[in-house]
Design a protein around this nucleic acid. Structure first.
Lengths: 163, 163
DNA sequence: TATTGTTATACTCTATAACTATA
DNA sequence: TATAGTTATAGAGTATAACAATA
């Protein structure tokens, strides 16, 4: 992918000591090699890409998946509580929920005890879709385990769980 | 970090048994607990936020920092090579570099061997700023080590390095 | 006054596609 | 034809601020 650009030998490509002179040399990470954030970010990007592709058939993003899972396991949660749990902004959650609601996956019920609160719950369609999402998400996780090797995956999960 | 806009305690917050009746109950993560991506994402968000705040005085983002470090350690790299190394889009790199160039931190030199290539290097100002950035980034990393505990930080870095 | 949900704004990031100039 | 750099666009994510209804 990097440097197989010498497919044609034009007769003037003779004096090429190295294709563009650089693609062979390994590139130094220097200071980044000591920054955990760099590696976390790289892995996180890979995970998001694979997750999105895997759940593309049902059009569920990582954020949407986490919302469906948390609401399913904690019926009646308010939006502020959900936002706090997932570490996202209340403002962003509004649009996220709006989408899910317009797809008929979640319901927002005014709380009888506090009219400001919206108690969240999944619709039957929401539960059905979540079932599919869980299966696809497991398929994604399997690919991730393969990529990392099971031992490394286990170590990472154990280190990060409950932070 | 999230929302410390309630710094003042007004003395009327007395009768609060549990704010909104629910924040006491632990919220179940359910299926998310088995997905490494969820925890990776949470940590990655924390890291970005802390990094951005720490380097705010010199206005250097995580992406900009990685560009400065890689270019500094690999003078003459092309934009395509840099994009490949960092795993970002060539298209995005253009704007990133444009900013850094307009701040006088990097130079793009047309390659004498291939007029399509831009060979990248830091300006003296770029090296100077990178020095400051490195110091601040280390300060960030120290905070990260504290948050994770040194042992966990070490385990994570070792597991992810060279992936 | 404070909180819940909401709207609005601005900027970054990601994913694409297409264009230009070179090769 | 293919590649390097560029431009443009659309959507998601993040950070804020402010507002109406309710407490």
């Amino acid at each position: 992918m990097t440097g197989n650009s010498h497919s044609r030998s034009k007769a003037l490509a003779l004096r090429r000591r190295a294709p563009t002179r650089r693609s062979a040399r390994p590139i130094a990470l220097d200071a980044l090699d000591n920054h955990l954030g760099y590696f976390i970010r790289r892995l996180q990007v890979w995970i998001f890409q694979d997750f999105i592709r895997t759940l593309a058939p049902i059009d569920v993003s990582p954020a949407q998946f986490s919302v469906l899972v948390i609401v399913s396991a904690n019926r009646g949660l308010s939006q502020t509580e959900l936002a706090g749990t997932l570490g996202i902004e209340r403002a962003r959650l509004v649009r996220l929920l709006h989408r899910l609601q317009s797809r008929g996956l979640i319901a927002r019920l005014r709380s009888s005890m506090d009219a400001r609160r919206h108690e969240l719950q999944l619709t039957p369609e929401g539960y059905a879709l979540l079932g599919q999402a869980r299966m696809l998400a497991m398929r994604h996780e399997k690919r991730l385990i393969e990529k990392l090797r099971p031992e490394r995956h286990r170590v990472l999960l154990q280190a990060l769980r409950g932070l």
